[in-house]
Amino acid sequence: MNFADFFAMGGYAWYVWPSWLLTAFILLWNVIAPQRKHRQLLQQLRTQTKREHLKRARQSNRSQSP
């Protein structure tokens, strides 16, 4: 079997390949999107936590020196 025959899919290339490509694309997207969101969430939570630590530190400084 040569490559041209393989890609022709017995004349059904326009139905078989879009099906497979669409499936592959959706599978990839559903892994990449949550992975990216996980990174963003960690980043966002880090800045949030830092800001709160700073705030708390400032407040305790103020209460110590009247």
């Binding site: 393989f6 899919m9 017995g10 004349g11 059904y12 139905y15 099906s19 499936t23």
Partner: peptide, 23 residues
Amino acid sequence: LVVAPSDYQQGDSYRIIYVHVPS
């Protein structure tokens, strides 16, 4: 896509089964 033979009725179009049915 490569090893399985063609279907005697549907030719190679049946290979859509491998993404359609599991989904």
